[in-house]
Structures are given as C-alpha cells and as structure tokens.
Simulated scan of single mutants.
Amino acid sequence: MTEVSATISSPPRKTRADAGRPGRRDRRRRSPYPNWFYLPAAVVYAVLFLVPTLLSFYFSLTRWTIFSSEFIGLDNFAQFFSEPALTKGFINTFVYAVVTSGAKVVLGMALGILLTSQIVGRGYLRSVVFFPVLVSTVGVGITFQVLMNPQKGVINHALSVFGVDQIGWLTNPSLALFSVALVDIWKGVGLATVIYMAGIVSIPNEYREAAKVDGAGAWSTFRNIILPLSWPATSTVVTLSLIGGLRSFDLIWAMTKGGPGFTSDVIASVIYKQYQAGFYGLSTAGNVILFIAVTAIVIPLTRFLSKKEVEM
C-alpha cells in the first residue's frame, strides 16, 4: 500500500527525450508572436503622433520655411506671449472651454434626468436633443451666422417683438465669444445628455425605491443617489467637453473668424492665422503651447475625477 501511494504521489520522471523538448506552458510563455501583434499599432502611433510631436517641438525653436530653418531658441514663445493679440487668444481659449464644458455638464444632467423620467413624447424629445450632434459643425456655424445677423437675423427680429433692440451677437467685441459658446453648447449638449442618460439608467432602481420608502423628496434623491452614482458620466462629460473646448476651431472660424478684431480668437484660430501669414515657426510654437496646455490640464483633471469616482 505504501509503495502504491508513493508511486501515485511522486511526479513523473522526465526522460532524456523530454529534457530537450520544452513544455507546452514554456512554449506559450516564450513564444514571440503575441509581442509582434503590437508592432503595426506601434508603427502607426509613432508615425502619426510621436514623430510629428517631436518635430513640432524642434520646429517651434526655429524660424522655418518649407526649404530652410534657422534655430532661434525660445524667441517664438517669447513673441507669442508678448503680443497682446496672441495672449488674448490664449486667455479666450480657457474662458471658452470652461463656459462650454460647465454648461454642457449642467444642461446635460438636467436633460438626462428629464428624458429618463416618465414624460410624454420622451423618444421624440431624445431625438430632438441629439439631432444637433449629427449636423456638420461648419454648417451650424454658417447657419447661426445668418440667424445672428444684427439687421436681418431671425433672432433679433424675434426679440424686437418684445422691445429688445438689435443685439450685435457677432459684431459686439464683448459678446462675440460668448455667442459662439452658446451655439457650441446647443450643438454639444446632446452628446452630454446621452452620456448622462446611460449613467442614470444604469443606477439600480432599488436605490430610488428605498429613498421613496424613507420619504426622500426629489432634491434629496438627486443629491444622495443620482448625483454620486452618475459620477462616471460626469467625469466623462467634463473630460470630453474640456478637451473639445480647448481645441475648438471650426465653429469659431465659421462664425467670426476670430473677430471682430481678435476678440473671439482662440489658440487654434491664432495658429491658423499665423500659418496664413507665413509665420510658420510662431504658429508651431502656438501648437506646442496648446499641446502643453491641454496635457497639463487634462491629465491631473482625469486623475482627480477618477479618484473622486472611487471615493463615491
């Protein structure tokens, strides 16, 4: 009996033929093929992102044309921050991003709660809210440029019925940037609403029923259940809206081209104008500044939102 148990418990001996033959697990571990699967994606990423980014950092330190370049150090960056028009575009970028992203978060959550409740025509209203997201940004900009015309625009004609004088939505230096921001909010709030709807629908119904049994009202249910449990949706909307606001160009260019003057310029439109004027090194420095600004804001913000999500 002892010999049988010893035979069963002892591991099988490796023969000389098995010694030179690796096991199946070892072959799988040493196989080079899975690592090679990363190569196509790595090549595409390097060609389309890493190489252009490194070249941009270099050419931002030069005065260059298509055929030649001259190394000038940090002169382009010094010039960028010394000219008021360029600095104005830098400030406008952050104002525009904060206004649009903040409004999308608030309106997106409000519409998300409304469109997940039991209201009449809920499916139709969802389509209406999301429709602007599907429309071309340039088309939206041209359309609202006509609607906001001070003399012939439909918006001013409608406001004149209530005794409101003609408003220079896109011609008043103090209103132009915020007018474009309103259009951006109108166009982008549909996506924020859909994200919030997905987050609210994923909340288990037992929480609401328990709150109702405890006598919690609508505000208490929102503050203690919907707001904390939909935090992943809030995190996503904040990140996407802020990145989109910092990189915004097409809507601003279609509606105002940065005008009147430089009052509605953002970094992207400043970069485009410098390219048009032939200041390639200065415009490349603007690209680098935009890249650094977006990275410096988005990475800490994403970590903060993720940490809050875990705490909640």
Rank of each mutant, 00 (worst) to 15 (best):
G153V: 11
T87L: 12
L134V: 14
T93S: 07
E83Q: 11
T87N: 06
T93C: 00
V133C: 05
T137M: 13
M148C: 14
T87Y: 06
V146I: 08
M148G: 12
S127A: 15
T116G: 00
L114I: 07
N149P: 11
V106Q: 07
F144H: 03
T137A: 14
I91K: 01
Y96L: 05
F144T: 00
L134T: 15
L107H: 06
L86I: 07
S82M: 03
G153W: 08
F81W: 03
G141E: 09
R122A: 09
Q79P: 00
K88R: 15
F94W: 10
G139D: 12
P150A: 09
T143F: 08
I113P: 00
S117E: 03
A85W: 04
G102R: 08
T137H: 09
F144Q: 01
F81C: 09
I119E: 01
L86F: 05
A110L: 11
G112R: 03
I142F: 15
T143H: 02
I91E: 00
G102H: 08
A103P: 00
A110H: 02
L114Y: 02
V128D: 00
S136N: 15
Y124K: 11
S101L: 10
G153F: 10
G141R: 06
F80Y: 12
L125C: 10
L86M: 11
V133W: 14
T87C: 05
I142S: 13
V135C: 12
